[in-house]
Nucleic acid binder design. Sequence first.
DNA 1: GTAGTTGCAAACATTTTGCGTTGTT
DNA 2: AACAACGCAAAATGTTTGCAACTAC
Lengths: 131, 131
Amino acid sequence: MEGIERSRKRSRQREEILAVLRSTKEHPTAAMLHTAARRRIPRLSLGTVYRNLDVLEEMGLVLHIRNGNAQDRFDGDVSPHYHFVCDACGAVLDMPLPYRPELDEAAAREGFRVRGHRLDFHGTCPACSKP
Amino acid sequence: MEGIERSRKRSRQREEILAVLRSTKEHPTAAMLHTAARRRIPRLSLGTVYRNLDVLEEMGLVLHIRNGNAQDRFDGDVSPHYHFVCDACGAVLDMPLPYRPELDEAAAREGFRVRGHRLDFHGTCPACSKP
DNA sequence: GTAGTTGCAAACATTTTGCGTTGTT
DNA sequence: AACAACGCAAAATGTTTGCAACTAC
């Protein structure tokens, strides 16, 4: 018993949110996206931002980076990659290291059915390291 | 300019919360700890659980696993180790793989000041994999 | 006696949802 | 015409905090 197909209709709001997300490397929060997208769609509501981020995630166009107490972040780059989180300022940066499938293989050897992994480095980002 | 020293007084609540946390491998949420610890301290409040988890984390006795929208989890095992998160039931299990310092070294070579990393595998846990 | 700790309840911050309306197909 | 998506505001969720009473030292 599969879920029924869901036909999507396009909307200016969804396209604008995706465009903003793809135009930045900052891994913005929902609130940041709301602020940015409202420059072009002033009546855009925050609820619509959240709803569309869900839809875009389901479509595989957006990565939802869940972060505990801090606000969640969103990433328009859906290729497998790692992040660096700054302990000082909270920024999320891309980490230019290749994905390591051997980690998944090692985990699978322990008897887990593994789909993938998430790897976040933490420390002090270049900007915050400056004296 | 460092923060001033803070003298701690012991409390039954804090000891009970730590005892519960150390007695399980389930990486409980604050609410689970509240429920469990109330078996012995019926008037224990959820606020006290959160306050003590903060204190215990600051003391280095507890690991706070921040998880985005899902409730945060807590771990009485503070040695560096990895987790497996089940996509189906949400359980958090320990992953018996050694910590890989070479990942931090690779990240440091990219110019980051790295303190460590967090690695979560995801997939289907043994219990949910059973037919 | 001093200052950390508690229970309680109210406050917070973020995310989700219900509803009547609008827009896309 | 059907129904996805909208804006808005209210609700839900998880966590934090103010305060007066209590407790360890």
